[in-house]
Design a protein around this nucleic acid. Structure first.
Length: 594
RNA sequence: ACUCCCAUAGUUCAACUGGAUAGAACAGUCGCCUCCUAAGCAACAGAUCUGGGUUCGAGUCCCGGUGGGAGUACCA
């Protein structure tokens, strides 16, 4: 069957037939023709000059003529410097379009690969509510999962709940001392926010105590480890690891508050997980593995009975794995968690850890340790490292309260959508519930698209004083285009959808839309391969831009020519399907009106 | 101090991984609603931190400089 990639292959074939040499294939660069030039595909010939021993223009002419002569696809070509621009016959574009229409899930891989991946994301600490940074993490992880599924893999969505450790004890100590028995119900606060409040209180007191100690003549370093409230937290951690029943009961109570808070936020964001791991369970296994490592000589135990790992790589300092008081650190449980995961899913093709780039070093060390422990799967662990979300004044710090709260931000975007929606007045006859449902979809889309359109590897900034835009390069803009197409399709329900391509003439805007459509499968594949939802997000935007430009200038259901009208309706429909499926991969739902 | 990352219009982001005249959006100026939803379309104006190098060709690669960020914890 002829499809778009057949054409690309025919260009490669022509070049291979014309020129001899080693690895000619690698020299061939085919791109979409830039907008300002005439043509559909462009072959860059500079790299072939060594073989042709001719000028760029002559080389391009040679290939162009060959293609016109041998292949039926091309109607013309032109040469600009070393660029050979090839024009594909409209009839072929329309044939391709028909074949896209006949596919069930155009762009998606229908045959399962049989590979199973685990994607870890979110993984919050249970001592404070989620903030904007977590949102970037959650949306990224969630859409990477969908991308992997789109190309035929199976995926387990997971998170590690960081439910133990000194940071949790801090909130617990502060609540015990200053909480007066306050609960989410008594305070009318969401559980995660209530616990977060005590985390901030701890820090405040801690800082105050440090200051007092310094004034009393201690050095800052001494003050930090001598502050009474800090000592209390340390003591509590020890009691916790020794399974002191009172401490455990308090811990369970407060964690429960946090979980129910998170649950609500996840529900609002429309994300869920398949398998949760709790640090409080996996750290045991981590300790065991570390202990075994000491026995096997992989790690060493120091005089004060703390346990360390050394590395052959000079850039890596020795890493502590168990403290001298026997309590474990973050790394300990991460080792245990990884081992546990491969016990649970022995067939994993890989684990993708969605974690901020501030932990690049941590994962470098972790993967090194797993290698040292000789786990065959160690090399399949991958850190999907993303950049921080920064505020105008710099990094967000929970302890200092300079964070953009996830719940607040989401509700403010939804409110923005509400006021805009009521201003426009298209939904007036709907029930309050239906309107709210639509506004939630719009608000979610504004927030998710805002975070997902940026290359995850790069840091990004957000100014909380400005609301998240709902027009321009945004999720709601894309939803809006979808809604307009839905409205068209509704009105054309009774129309016959057939069209004959023999006599059909399409204009440049329609051709441009078809070209965007033709790129969808590649974009999906590339986004999945590079774990980069932003490529898909930006593609969808370009597709929609192009479609809108067509929509503005040409009648669709009111077009008189039968074939042309039906072609336009069908093209609109395919565009809407790509938008919907693509946005769903980004975790964004479509309203059918707005 | 050492290691790593980053620097593109006033602002927030792109640039098919070395290809043509660096694209968008927001903000600014301006035009389009008796016409399929104006959350739209169209137009104007505006940018590669700096100095060298590599080559047919550099925002992209290499070296130096400046400016920012992160990491190097018995923190997470």
């Amino acid at each position: 069957m002829t499809n778009f990639s057949t054409i690309k292959k025919s260009i490669v074939t022509a070049v291979l037939e014309l020129f001899e040499g080693e690895n000619v294939q690698d020299l061939i660069v085919i791109e979409d023709t830039k907008k300002d030039f005439e043509g559909d595909l462009t072959l860059v010939v500079f790299s072939l000059l060594k073989l042709s021993k001719k000028s760029p223009e002559q080389t391009a002419e040679l290939i162009g003529n060959r293609l016109l002569e041998k292949q039926p696809y091309f109607e013309d070509f032109n040469v600009v410097k070393g660029f050979l621009n090839l024009k594909i016959k409209q009839n072929y574009w329309l044939t391709f379009f028909k074949s896209w229409l006949s596919e069930d899930d155009y762009g998606f891989v229908s045959k399962p690969t049989g590979e199973l991946y685990m994607v870890e994301y979110s993984s919050p600490n249970t001592n404070k509510p989620l903030h904007l940074g977590h949102l970037r993490n959650i949306f990224l992880g969630d859409s990477v999962v969908s991308l992997l599924k789109a190309v035929g893999h199976q995926v387990v969505k997971t998170q590690i709940i960081n439910d133990r450790g000194i940071h949790i004890c801090k909130s617990m100590v502060a609540w015990q001392k200053y909480g007066n028995g306050e609960t989410p119900i008594s305070s009318n606060l969401k559980g995660d926010h209530l616990v977060g409040k005590y985390y901030v209180i701890f820090d405040k007191i801690y800082k105050q105590e440090i200051k007092e100690l310094i004034d009393g003549g201690f050095s800052e370093k001494e003050a930090k480890v001598k502050a009474p409230i800090f000592l209390e937290a340390q003591k509590m951690l020890l009691l916790w690891e020794n399974e002191d029943s009172k401490v455990r009961a308090l811990w369970e109570k407060m964690n429960q508050w946090v979980y129910s808070g998170f649950e609500k936020t996840y529900k609002d964001l429309n994300v869920e997980f398949d398998h949760l791991y709790y640090e409080s369970n996996t750290y045991h296994l981590g300790k065991e593995v570390v202990q075994k490592g000491v026995e096997n000589g992989v790690f060493y135990s120091s005089e004060d009975s703390s346990i360390w790992s050394t590395f052959s790589d000079n850039n890596l300092d020795d890493k502590l794995l168990v403290r001298s008081d026997g309590t474990s650190v973050y790394m300990t449980q991460d080792i245990g968690t990884a081992v546990q995961r491969y016990k649970d899913y022995p067939n994993l093709s890989g684990i993708i850890y969605t974690v901020g780039n501030e932990q690049n070093h941590h994962f470098n060390v972790l993967f090194n340790i797993l290698e040292k422990l000789n786990y065959s799967w160690a090399s399949n662990c991958f850190h999907l490292s993303y950049g921080m979300v920064e505020l105008p004044e710099g990094k967000m710090k929970s302890r200092e309260g300079t964070v953009v709260d996830a719940d607040e931000l989401l509700s403010s975007v939804i409110n923005e959508a509400k006021s805009l929606t009521s201003e426009r007045g298209f939904l007036e006859e709907l029930s309050q519930e239906d309107i709210l449902d639509i506004c939630k979809k719009i608000g979610n889309s504004g927030l998710k698209y805002f975070l997902l359109k940026v290359d995850p590897r790069r840091k990004m900034s957000f100014n909380p004083k400005e609301t998240i835009d709902l027009s321009g390069h945004t999720g709601p803009f894309i939803q809006y285009t979808f809604v307009r197409i839905m409205s068209l399709l509704k009105k054309s329900e009774d129309l016959d959808n057939e069209f004959n391509i023999e006599d059909l003439k399409i204009n440049s805007k329609e051709l441009e839309v078809l070209k965007f459509i033709s790129n969808f499968p590649d974009i999906l594949g590339q986004s999945a391969k590079e774990l980069s939802p932003y490529l898909l997000a930006n593609y969808l935007y370009s597709l929609v831009k192009s479609y809108n430009s067509f929509y503005q200038d040409h009648p669709i259901i009111t077009e008189d020519n039968y074939d042309l009208r039906n072609f336009r309706v069908q093209m609109s429909k395919l565009v809407s399907e790509i938008i919907e499926k693509g946005m769903n991969i980004l975790g964004i739902e479509m309203p059918d009106r707005m």
